[in-house]
Design a protein around this nucleic acid. Structure first.
Lengths: 135, 135
DNA sequence: TGAACATATGAACAACTATTCAAATATACT
DNA sequence: AGTATATTTGAATAGTTGTTCATATGTTCA
């Protein structure tokens, strides 16, 4: 049709060094004050990604079921595999990810590794999430 | 030696119809009681997926930033695009997903659509998550 | 009516992810 | 030593996802 370019061309600041504290509103924004307010309250990037990674970890049905199962007590890998009806290898992969995020921990007893939740925040999170879903 | 819990047998469930279809404990599981306990406490599949979808939605940095920004008040699409420094189309796509999960809602005022959080659970979730991350 | 604006939508593509398979550790028992 | 169990790890792959681009829809105002 008519447009051959983006409406209201992005006014990229000439050689603007992005990322850091460059607060150039490079697109038209209607409420610049709110944008800056949001920027000033934004959490550090590292925390943001940690948080996102945690939610992403809980965002998979298999991992979520693992966490829910563990909220009732520790279980070993083959128990979880039987519960989830997926291979033990798959469970192990998921547990590794959950462990790297400090969501679960394990203890060894002989050949068996018992997994459990790392702290209470996790089950609180799930409980709160269920509240939202069930409302 | 101490606990000889009769580890297992690859046992086809004798009374084997659980709620779902054919559930067979096709792997050895060491603590069958715990597996069954977990099964009995498991939330319905639909709720499980709703919950997972919600966490998955929060598991993306862009969407998470949107939610965090909106927890301080409503913003329109172009504000959010300016804040996130991504295209308005991308923001719109993400907002659609958040809206389909009842995490955000919008109201129209003329040409402008103002987005805000749908309920308080969302910001509580994020706050609780931050607690975990920051500990 | 039509231009301009604000947002939504569909398609496409790269990037990511969850699972499986095969092979590797690690521990216990004989 | 060796065998069996319990779990981990790496590679490969099918499936999913976030963004961009192009276009469509809906609204306001001249």
């Amino acid at each position: 049709m008519m447009e051959n370019k983006a409406p209201n061309e992005i006014q990229t600041p000439s050689a603007g060094q992005d990322k850091a504290s460059e607060e150039v509103c490079w697109v038209r924004c209607i409420h610049q004050d709110r944008v800056e307010e949001a920027r000033s309250r934004a959490v550090p990037v590292k925390e943001l990604h940690q948080l996102a990674d945690m939610y992403k970890a809980l965002g998979d049905p298999s991992r979520l079921r693992i966490v829910m199962a563990l909220s009732q007590g520790e279980m070993c890998v083959c128990d979880l595999a039987a519960f989830l009806e997926i291979s033990e290898s798959a469970v192990s992969h998921q547990l590794r990810r959950l462990r790297s995020l400090a969501l679960v921990k394990n203890r060894r007893d002989g050949k068996i590794l018992y997994y459990s939740l790392d702290d209470d925040h996790v089950s609180s999170l799930v409980a709160l999430g269920l509240e939202h879903v069930r409302e």
